[in-house]
């Protein structure tokens, strides 16, 4: 049996809100599970209206366990989004919401899993990968890692400044960033080959993004000779 966490709903307090991109905001939440998760995992969030009506959604954790007693969620404001709309338009520091988790142990990485570690992110799919990068930087910077990150534009890319700074200072961390709407190309066989040449053969691969992106990236990696069993995927939206 793999460690099974306690899935009770718990109150969490919003301690900070900050813009990340034009569409994405960061929320720091004080919660008891702050140091009890593996990077890559997500939490379920629950909101309750005055009349008892409830809505739930899942959000990946962006932070690494950092002793702060908080976790960071990065939430994209979706058109007409019932829960993301609350976070973007109503939520303030000091508000309480409910959450439970951590959930999703298959899509998670810890230093004991080793590397080389290949992370492939599309758009806001980079969030759980950011948690892995932050954790690696803090506790195992010697493990070789490469992030292949595709976003529409530089402005749409989440935490790109931080990731570039990490790639510049952490030995063994490489970044291949492509902005698909500003002249960069979509991830293709050549990009994947470049990533594999730079990193060496990965022992762990995590792909996260929208459905077509994840399907394409997974197929390209398998065609490039990566064993399917090493690849874990997570998809956002349809």
């Amino acid at each position: 049996m793999i460690e099974v966490p306690d899935f009770r709903w718990r109150q969490a307090l919003i301690t900070a809100i900050a813009p990340v991109t034009a569409r994405v905001k960061s929320f720091r939440l004080r919660t008891e599970i702050a140091d009890a998760y593996r990077p890559g995992q997500h939490v379920d969030v629950r909101l309750t209206a005055e009349d008892g009506y409830r809505a739930q959604r899942s959000y990946s954790i962006a932070s690494a366990p950092d002793g702060s007693g908080t976790i960071e969620l990065m939430i994209e404001g979706l058109e007409g989004g019932e829960v993301s709309g609350f976070f973007h338009e109503i939520a303030e520091v000091g508000d309480a919401i409910e959450l439970r988790g951590p959930i999703g142990g298959a899509f998670s990485w810890g230093p004991a899993d080793g590397g080389p570690l290949l992370l492939v992110g599309g758009g806001s799919g980079v969030v759980p990968l950011l948690a892995m990068l932050r954790h690696r930087g803090a506790v195992a910077p010697e493990i070789p890692a490469l992030l292949l990150y595709s976003a529409r534009t530089r402005g749409d890319a989440i935490a790109l400044d931080e990731i570039e700074a990490r790639a510049g200072t952490e030995p063994g961390l490489s970044l291949i960033f492509t902005a698909t709407r500003s002249g960069g190309r979509r991830i293709d066989a050549a990009t994947v080959a470049e990533a594999l040449t730079t990193l060496g053969h990965p022992t762990r691969v995590f792909i996260c993004g929208a459905t077509p992106f994840v399907g394409t990236a997974a197929t390209l990696l398998v065609e490039a000779g990566v064993a399917p069993g090493l690849i874990r995927t997570e998809r956002f939206g349809g």
């Binding site: 109150q11 629950r46 909101l47 309750t48 209206a49 005055e50 009506y53 409830r54 809505a55 739930q56 007409g80 019932e82 609350f86 109503i90 939520a91 508000d95 309480a96 919401i97 409910e98 349809g238």
Partner: peptide, 26 residues
């Protein structure tokens, strides 16, 4: 515990009847 300011976007009653707790329709 109600969440301050959360109203929610309720589905039509016919839809709600077919939705198990915590689910939304896609």
């Amino acid at each position: 515990m109600a969440t301050r300011g959360f109203v929610g976007r309720r589905s039509p009653e016919e839809t709600q009847k077919r939705l198990p707790p915590g689910q939304h329709r896609v």
